[in-house]
């Protein structure tokens, strides 16, 4: 049995399982922290830095998805500084590749778009980069547009940890990082891919998607919960 710890989040006293991360505990207690690369049910990355919070007594900010709760911890989820940082994170992601919502399959169902609205990222202070990655339409059911990828690695983690296949990974580093199938094969020729579709279901943007269907028809959230229920079945089985 794991221990229970008590902490406060925005002044609200909550009890949590030791070892759980702040974001998960906050959500369980209906306290909202914006987040992007986080996906419940798979390991946390701590990459997007949208879910940063402050902890009283420390001058630093912490990605709540990878910071474990601790006894007596006082978490602050909203401040001028946090809002400023979160805005930068979204702004930089929007500027990193050509995100053009009006022609994107995820328009209206995109977590990046939604966070931009929510955090008030109504313009970009930095130049946009117009990448020109080739669209991968080789798979019979799915498509991959690297130009819309935000490198959250949800697809990589779900493929590895839930499907158990690890057909997806990153290549190159830094600003040149790219999500690839197998050893940078075209998706349709990636032998280890089982075509389960979990990656496109968890993609927060329009980088991985089901061909021929706008996302308004394939509600992503429902698919995510479907994936997760399968995961718990697996765990129980």
């Amino acid at each position: 049995m794991s221990k229970t710890v008590e902490l406060t989040i925005d002044g609200k006293k909550v009890a949590a399982k030791e070892g759980d991360n702040i974001l998960k505990v906050a959500r369980e207690n209906n306290i909202y922290i914006p987040a992007l690369c986080y996906l419940e049910g798979v390991s946390s990355l701590g990459g997007c830095r949208v879910c940063v919070v402050e902890i009283r007594g420390s001058p630093k900010v912490f990605a709540s998805c990878v910071t474990p709760v601790a006894e007596g911890m006082e978490v602050i989820t909203d401040s001028e500084r946090l809002r400023r940082y979160r805005k930068w994170a979204i702004e930089l992601l929007l500027a990193e590749r050509p995100h053009v919502c009006s022609v994107c399959v995820a328009n209206g169902n995109c977590e990046l778009q939604q966070l931009a609205t929510e955090l008030g990222v109504d313009h970009l202070r930095v130049d946009r980069k117009w990448t020109n990655y080739e669209l991968d339409l080789t798979h019979e059911r799915f498509a991959y547009d690297p130009n819309r990828c935000i490198l959250c690695t949800r697809c990589i983690r779900v493929c590895d940890e839930v499907e158990g296949v690890h057909a997806i990974d990153l290549m190159l580093r830094g600003k040149n990082s790219k999500v690839i199938f197998d050893l940078d094969d075209k998706w349709g020729f990636a032998e280890s891919c089982t075509s389960c579709g979990k990656c496109s279901a968890v993609c927060p943007v329009g980088a991985l998607y089901v061909k021929g269907k706008p996302l308004s028809e394939v509600k992503k959230k429902e698919l995510v919960s479907f994936v997760m229920s399968r995961r718990s079945e697996k765990t129980i089985g």
Partner: peptide, 21 residues
């Protein structure tokens, strides 16, 4: 910028924009 691993947004995307400015 060249040496950033690319995992987190500030370092991967932020440094590049800083360099461009």
């Amino acid at each position: 910028v060249d040496e950033s691993c690319g995992k987190c947004t500030p370092c991967r995307a932020g440094l590049y924009k800083l360099y461009k400015i």
